[in-house]
Design a protein around this nucleic acid. Structure first.
Lengths: 239, 239
DNA sequence: CGGCCCCGTCACGCTGTTGTCACGCGGGCG
DNA sequence: CGCCCGCGTGACAACAGCGTGACGGGGCCG
């Protein structure tokens, strides 16, 4: 079974070169030059791997990745990100997005081809990713997160989180034990730097708590400061 | 638990640079310049990750990797390979060796650091922050403060402080040993420059003392001037 | 095109926090 | 020795901050 690869970039030079080389190696390829198109194609017939540029005309690459993870049909697709600022890479391959690999621009085509091959083989049918998949999971008390699959559980009961909620929860867990001001959260989760008087953060924290049920108590309110995710699941703070 | 990283390369330049950078990020490092030495060290106390050069004086990097995978003690260790001729990479990250990632020489240190961080996090059991949080703590006698977490303890008993009280206490400790006039405190803690006739400061000092219990005596009243936090916990001032 | 889901905003009500006041005490200064 | 200013203290009312339910717009999918 030859692998199918979806190339997403608005630069024809890049997709062209990659397509040529990948086909020469026996892969089937598809090309999309916008995020929307990429999502449509991926949902139509999920590829084995998506090479995803971060800079796209419509949606950002991170957004595309997020939506891929949210759809059952495309959840398991491997994602290799192209380009990321150094300080973004952590989020790209970390809790939040769970991309499987990345290559920074300018990149050598050879390098990219090698990484694609490595990813596909690591994920090959008879070499189940079971082991590595486990390692990608994040467990905190009764909460379990699988960033690459973009799924969440509480007590082994799956919880359906929206993209935003997932991002919020991932950020909380990543920064557990430390208070996050509303401003900080708006920066990191919403990617906006606005002075805020709205109750947006509060509302989404409420929704997240609601969906997490008992585990919602992991999110503590520090009045006048912000929110804090518990440092440890069994921790008891002063009354 | 900070991660332990074993660097294996016969180039002191490389190991030196990496060691410096990794330590700066809080990792523990070990260095080996031969394959045999690397294996010995790894078996002695298995590290969390091995950065492994392919070109070594005695054993090849691939051979070292293979033996690491064969030994029960070191089987689970993450391996990041340095340098590989293009046509070798397939074997390195493939079934045969099963390295977890690779970086080709010449490599950017930044790139390598990012990949190391990504690997470790993906593989981190838990509590990646526990240790670093410690470093942010402020300890003064029986009082302990954790500003990022916005928590306070007296004799390891957590004390619940309001945002204002926390700010006040932090300011005191920051300016310990020096008298703070009520005006100064209103400036720094309340961020207002008002002529003061109110008993606001006094009231909050009282509340803070109350919550601190015995440790409340760290805050001394300097009649006619203001308040002063002790310079040292064991200090006794003349009555 | 229509329905659904997601998300931002708003208003309302509650609770903990905070500023103020009055009172009493005590120490220093005249 | 006594008075006065400064400080501790308890009470209290206003208020800000937060939880919550509801609403409407907008985007995505069928």
């Amino acid at each position: 079974m030859t692998a199918r690869i979806l190339l997403v970039d608005d630069e024809p030079d890049i997709t062209g070169t990659l397509e040529y080389n990948l086909r020469r190696e026996g892969y089937e390829t598809q090309v999309a030059d916008t995020g929307q198109q990429a999502l449509a194609l991926a949902r139509e017939t999920p590829p084995d791997l998506v090479v995803l540029d971060l800079m796209l005309p419509d949606l950002s690459g991170t957004e595309v990745c997020r939506r891929l993870r949210q759809d059952d049909r495309t959840r398991g697709v491997l994602v290799l990100m192209l380009t990321a600022r150094g300080d973004e890479i952590d989020r790209v391959v970390g809790f939040e997005l769970g991309a499987d690999d990345y290559v920074t621009k300018p990149f050598s085509v050879r390098e990219l081809l090698l990484r694609i091959r490595a990813l596909l083989r690591r994920n090959a049918p008879d070499a189940p990713r079971a082991e590595t998949a486990r390692e990608d999971e994040v467990v905190f008390g009764r909460v379990r997160l699988d960033p690459p699959a973009h799924r969440a559980w509480v007590d082994d009961e799956e919880v359906r989180l929206t993209a935003l909620e997932f991002r919020l929860l991932a950020t909380f867990i990543e920064r557990k034990g430390r208070v996050q001001s509303r401003d900080a959260l708006l920066n990191d989760v919403w990617s906006i730097h606005a002075d805020v008087t709205t109750r947006t953060v509060d509302t989404h924290v409420k929704r997240l708590r609601e969906k997490l049920g008992e585990a919602g108590h992991y999110i503590e309110t520090i009045r006048g400061v912000g929110y804090r995710f518990r440092a440890r699941p069994d921790e008891e703070t002063a009354p």
